[in-house]
Each structure stands twice: as C-alpha cells, then as structure tokens.
C-alpha cells in the first residue's frame, strides 16, 4: 500500500484531501456546535467544499474555460475543461442559497417560539413541555402515572 505514495500521487490527490478537510470542518460545526445559525454556516462550508470537489474533478491540465470563441471558429488543439460539473454546480449553488434561506426562516420561527436558538435550551424547553403534558395526561388517567 505504502509504495503507492509516490510524489505524483500525493500531488495529484492533494486537492481531494484538502476539500475533504474542509468538508469535515463543516460537518464538525454542524454536529458539535449548538447554535443554529452556526450550524447553517457549517452546512454552507460543507456544501461549498463539495462544490469545489466536483469542479476540481472536471479540471483538465492545460485546459481552459469551456467557452468557444464568439465566431465559433474552434481551434481543435485547445483543450476545454469539463463543462458538465460546472452546469450541475452552478444550479446547485442557487438551489443551495434557496434552501439555506428556508433554514434561516425556520430559525427565525424557532426563535419566536422558544426565545432561543441554542439547541440545548430548545431541547430543555421541549422536555419541560413534554413533562407537563405527561403530568396532565397522568392526572386525567386518575393520577397513577406521574
């Protein structure tokens, strides 16, 4: 396994590894942090690094941006980078911002209901509500369940 790690191999894969590091940073923010706005930012970082991973797969060494000369006189020697990932990611970015804003709108509503955007605090309040409900139901059942 180790003999695979030649210099060209490392240089050729460094881009993937860097994007994975970025992705994991984003994932860590989403999982470990309690603040909802920060979670969204983490999600954005994750998303952007996935975008860059895709685009970097479409890059061809010595290639140029996939736009022909305006008169469509195409020089057959010019190498163009792969336009397909560009299309996919282009639309994904705009869809991403639309979904992000949906998430932010949810946060605003959560804040109005719970007066907090910290995950722990929200869970506490939920717990309190659930306990109160249990209590009520228990009393309705004749006070046996508490």
């Amino acid at each position: 396994m180790l003999e695979e790690f030649t210099w060209p191999f490392i240089v050729g894969h460094l881009n993937y590894w860097l994007f994975i590091v970025l992705m994991m940073t984003g994932l860590y923010i989403v999982v470990a942090k309690g603040n909802l706005v920060k979670k969204i930012v983490g999600l954005n970082i994750f998303q952007t690094s996935v975008f860059m991973l895709y685009i970097s797969m479409g890059k061809v060494t010595g290639g140029t941006a996939p736009i022909f000369p305006i008169d469509l006189n195409i020089d057959p020697d010019v190498v163009y980078s792969n336009p397909l990932p560009h299309v996919l990611i282009l639309t994904a970015i705009v869809v991403g911002i639309a979904t992000t804003s949906l998430g932010l709108a949810l946060i605003v509503r959560i804040r109005e209901e719970y007066d907090s955007i910290e995950e722990e605090r929200i869970l506490e309040i939920e717990q309190a509500i659930a306990n109160a409900e249990n209590q009520r139901h228990g009393q309705a059942m004749g006070g046996r369940a508490t």
């Binding site: 060209p8 191999f9 240089v11 050729g12 894969h13 460094l14 881009n15 993937y16 970097s56 797969m57 479409g58 890059k59 061809v60 060494t61 010595g62 290639g63 190498v79 792969n82 397909l84 990932p85």
Partner: peptide, 12 residues
C-alpha cells in the same frame, strides 16, 4: 481517484 487534471479520468 484519478490524478488531478488528468485527461484520462472517467469524468472526462
């Protein structure tokens, strides 16, 4: 994965 920028990559 194929090397970065390789023209023989499956994606290309």
């Amino acid at each position: 994965m194929p090397n970065f920028g390789s023209p023989e990559a499956p994606a290309q």
